[in-house]
């Protein structure tokens, strides 16, 4: 990042603006904390406990966590709906909740609630006005987006008559009205049918291809795994891990599954027993033997053995931990440490 006024020729504001514009990070969150007090008993509730992460420009970032993990609270802080107790956020190099930062973001709230007496065109016109777009741009963008999210036929209906999926699409359209650099989507696929979920996933990838940064929260593992370039797992108000899907699941090899085709006379023979012996599990269907080796086993040595016994190698597939297993383990770990901490308190 450039230092402000490094060349001495720029005014401080111009230099700061330039520094912000060249930041490689679309979103930077540092040490975010949010503490509530319950209304009557004034019990302290820590919704966020030092959440820190960053999102590079042009990436799809999945924010994964169970219900009540702090996903929505983090997003609401990002969008200026909630003031953090501590920590800071920046979007495209601009501090939040500044107007400039918010002008670069499109936001789809969780379970979008919109003015149900408006039509989708009126909703987009309102969004466009708040973003400071002129009338011609508002009309053009609204027409483009209504077509893009497939609400052309329903454009004259009030939002009151929309289904959940249609409302979600209207919400996506209003989030894109300002042609944002960063799109923040809170549970965008929640409550949608499989077709709707697929459409949302495709739209997210389309946005990434157009150079946008997409930050979305979800508790639907398959959605996150399918489209996210990077994932952060959040539980009990803390980031448990962050990385690419491969980094998260590839760190622990669970074993290797090998499928062999045995020689015609090898079935039920010593050769089969020799091949099954070193494996953690083995099962034979017709002339194919499927074996699972432990992670620490020497695959090359096993393949040499198979070759020596006349078996043909059909496939060798390393078995990693699934995202679901990683997720569940980290949630369980967070729950255990949280319970221990609460026990100490």
């Amino acid at each position: 990042m450039r230092e402000p006024c490094a060349d001495g020729a720029l005014g401080p504001q111009v230099a700061l603006s330039l520094a912000a514009s060249v930041s490689a990070l679309a979103i930077e969150v540092r040490g975010l904390e949010k503490t509530y007090r319950t209304p009557f008993r004034r019990r302290k509730v820590e919704a966020l406990r030092g959440v820190s992460f960053s999102v590079e420009r042009g990436r799809v970032f999945g924010f994964l966590g169970p219900n009540g993990a702090g996903k929505t609270t983090t997003i609401r802080v990002l969008m200026g709906l909630i003031r953090p107790s501590a920590g800071s956020c920046r979007i495209m190099g601009h501090d939040l909740p500044s107007q400039v930062a918010r002008s670069r973001v499109g936001f789809l709230p969780e379970q979008p609630y919109f003015y149900d007496y408006l039509t989708v065109s009126e909703l987009l016109d309102l969004a466009g006005r708040l973003f400071g777009l002129d009338r011609a741009t508002r009309r053009r963008r609204a027409d483009e987006l209504i077509a893009k999210v497939g609400l052309d036929r329903a454009r004259s209906q009030s939002l009151k008559k929309y289904s959940k999926g249609m409302l979600q699409r209207a919400g996506l359209a209003q989030a894109l009205m300002n042609d944002p650099d960063v799109v923040v989507l809170d549970e965008p696929t929640s409550g949608l049918d499989p077709v709707g979920r697929k459409e949302v996933r495709e739209l997210i990838l389309e946005l990434r291809d157009a150079g946008k940064t997409v930050f979305f929260s979800s508790h639907i593992l398959s959605d996150v795994e399918t489209i996210a370039d990077e994932i952060a797992i959040v539980a009990r108000g803390q980031i448990q891990s962050q990385g690419t899907p491969r980094e998260l699941v590839g760190q622990s090899l669970q074993g290797t599954e090998i499928v062999l085709r045995l020689a015609a006379d090898a079935a039920n023979s010593d050769a089969e027993r020799s091949l099954a012996a070193p494996a953690r599990a083995a099962r034979r269907i017709a002339d194919e033997l499927t074996v699972t080796l432990a992670a620490e086993d020497d695959v090359d040595a096993y393949l040499a053995l198979a070759h020596g016994l006349g078996a043909k190698v059909v496939s060798v597939v390393p078995r990693h931990e699934t995202l679901e297993a990683v997720f569940l383990r980290q949630i369980a770990g967070a729950d255990a440490s949280g319970s221990a901490r609460e026990g100490r308190v």
Binding site: S103, Y117, L126, R129, D134, T137
Partner: peptide, 28 residues
Amino acid sequence: MTAQPSVAGPAASVGRIWAVALNTFREA
């Protein structure tokens, strides 16, 4: 990078206030 409309200044501020006012009028 996307060209962003200006959000600063009195004219932009009046535009946003008017947008909320119109919507409130519709609602009421």
